[in-house]
Computed example of a mutant assay.
Amino acid sequence: MATNITWHPSLSRHERNHLRGQRGFTIWLTGLSASGKSTVATALEQHLLHLGLSAYRLDGDNVRFGLNKDLGFSEKDRNENIRRIAEVAKLFADSATIVISSFISPYRADRQMARELHEQANTNSDDPIPFIEVFVDVPLAVAEQRDPKGLYKKARAGEIKDFTGITAPYEEPLDPQIRIRTHELSVEDCVAKITAWLYAQGLLSPTQKAI
């Protein structure tokens, strides 16, 4: 661990939220590959931007082209992948940005760690950073039938090791804040369900309407 470092205080989270006219928080989408996480996350980001809000999507594949390009898919590397993303999400949310994180994140312990990082950032703050877990709940058979990248086919053929749902576990959330089923709802309906929950919790203002 680094030593000889000092934390330098900045504007308070309350000041940033007030000046930017919105509250920062993290929406964490978890689910199997091909469950529809990225599709819903992209549509949700677009919808929030149309509301005049600052929102940014962190995608499981995209971050592996840069920030996490040194990580593989072993359990250890998956753990580190989620830890880094959780830290980045926390920083974005602290800046009064709405973060939409779209990762398989197969282990409950890793998702709990991400939640706790946000909770720890709330010490001595009047404006805590909410962490909203969204379970994109799709049966394995449906995800495997979709298989847009051909990954399930390769995993079944033994060409991909440690593939979630086939040769590596996926631990479903026990008590997610939101559950969406993309095989039963349209993308628009999934976005509407998430947005309605955010309004109900007071995380979005009724005055924020699409432009």
Score class of each variant (00 low, 15 high):
E45I: 07
L49F: 11
G158E: 11
F135T: 06
Q112H: 13
E15D: 15
A168S: 15
L140Q: 08
S10G: 13
P169C: 04
D77L: 01
G165S: 02
L32P: 08
I180W: 09
D127S: 14
T6H: 12
Y152F: 15
R64C: 00
E184N: 05
Y199C: 07
N68A: 06
L19D: 11
G36P: 11
Q22C: 09
L140R: 07
K90T: 07
I5C: 04
Q201M: 10
R181Y: 03
R84G: 03
S101R: 00
R13M: 08
N68I: 00
D126W: 05
L117D: 02
I104S: 01
F163K: 02
A55Y: 11
N62P: 02
T182R: 02
L203E: 05
Q177V: 07
D147A: 11
G158K: 06
S54W: 03
M113P: 00
S101H: 10
P139D: 09
A157V: 01
K209D: 02
F65K: 06
A200M: 03
R57C: 12
E75C: 00
A200F: 01
S101G: 01
I82H: 01
F73L: 06
Y56G: 01
S54A: 12
Y56F: 14
A89E: 04
I100F: 05
P176L: 07
D147F: 10
T39K: 08
L117K: 09
L11S: 15
E75I: 01
R108G: 01
Y170W: 11
R115P: 02
A121G: 05
N68G: 03
S10P: 00
V142I: 15
D175W: 03
S74A: 03
V142K: 03
I104G: 02
I100S: 10
R146Y: 06
R84T: 06
V99K: 00
P106G: 03
E15H: 13
N79T: 12
R146H: 08
L203N: 02
G165M: 08
E184K: 14
G36R: 06
L198K: 08
A143S: 15
D77P: 01
I100E: 05
A200L: 08
S102Q: 04
L204Y: 11
N81C: 03
A200D: 14
E87H: 09
K149S: 07
P128L: 05
S205K: 14
L49K: 15
F92C: 09
A89I: 02
T6W: 06
A200Y: 05
L49S: 09
A2H: 13
D70A: 05
Y152S: 04
L185H: 14
S125M: 10
S33A: 13
H14A: 15
